[in-house]
Design a protein around this nucleic acid. Structure first.
Ligand SMILES: [Mn+2]
Ligand SMILES: [Mn+2]
Ligand SMILES: [Zn+2]
Ligand SMILES: [Zn+2]
Lengths: 153, 153
DNA sequence: CCAATAAATGAAACTCTTTTTCATTTACGT
DNA sequence: ACGTAAATGAAAAAGAGTTTCATTTATTGG
């Protein structure tokens, strides 16, 4: 996809373009699911030799550069998604981990101003994560309902 | 404070009213900070003998009953706050962990409806966490700035 | 292209958090 | 008070993430 853009970003910040870094980028670009470090490690390991430590280090670097974003999954897992540039909010499927980044909450700055006025806090950042079921997991849920009522085993 | 209300809630759901459960409730009620299981354990241990496992189990139970809420701290820690009944959003101080629960985001349902229309997802829940500095930590940050420029040691 | 060099990697050991197991203790209805 | 099931705590295990350090690799410029 736009892997060159990301590799350039690495180089421009003085980081070397290594095989693990390219691989992690490629995996993140190709996945439409949020991936845990362990999952990325497993996927990467199928193609070449790599250490889990390097996955952690690479994700930390990519997060720092704003290329990926960490999300907090429903069951406590920490996973990563490719970050859409700019400020986005994340919608994650509780069934399969598929995610969508959502833009365009114009009201958010107003909300933050109000919160600061009411509390005296200075708001530095916020996290909005939406959880639910993607279309295909909704279908599966419905089928499972029907299946259960017909179940004869 | 309103500890009776919570103990009743335990009893009405068929759970026994034990010393650890009362203690965790009391600690959560008295704290104006988000507390990690380890912190609650430490605090509890000063007053009577208790196991860290029990803290985890109790927090899981209280969360399930809607009495506490888990929050994801800035540095990756998982902490708990007393949940204001109803749907609230959390504002946490990155400096000291002090928190405030914020109500009254009337726009949220509209936002969710829009998200569902745009993505086909069915949104089940959302998490909005705001992070920043509380008034006193803002003060400290300012003092540290001045201190640094005057520093003569 | 090759050599020098600093950055990045991977294996192993380690730390920290959370869960499981199971024998003992405790709460609570009778 | 007693009996019983629920809850607890100690210990061990599982999981997630980090640190250390010797080895490998990417880059640069000769
Ligand atoms: Mn988390
Ligand atoms: Mn936002
Ligand atoms: Zn799904
Ligand atoms: Zn503070």
């Amino acid at each position: 996809m736009q892997i060159d853009q990301f590799t350039n970003q690495l180089r421009q910040n003085g980081y070397r373009l290594t095989k693990p870094r390219q691989a992690v980028l490629q995996i993140m670009i190709e996945s439409e699911r949020a991936l845990t470090p362990a999952e990325i490690y497993q996927e990467g390991s199928e193609h070449f030799r790599v250490g889990l430590v390097t996955i952690y280090r690479t994700l930390a670097l990519l997060e720092q550069l704003g290329i990926v974003r960490q999300v907090h999954l429903h069951d406590g897992e920490h996973a990563y998604v490719l970050a859409t540039p700019g400020h986005y909010h994340t919608l994650i499927c509780n069934g399969c981990g598929r995610f969508v980044e959502i833009a365009g909450l114009a009201e958010m700055p107003h909300l933050i101003a109000e919160v600061e006025a009411r509390t005296g806090f200075k708001v530095a950042e916020h996290r909005l994560e939406l959880y639910g079921l993607c279309p295909s997991c909704q279908q599966q849920a419905i089928q499972r309902q029907h299946g259960a009522s017909h179940d004869t085993t």
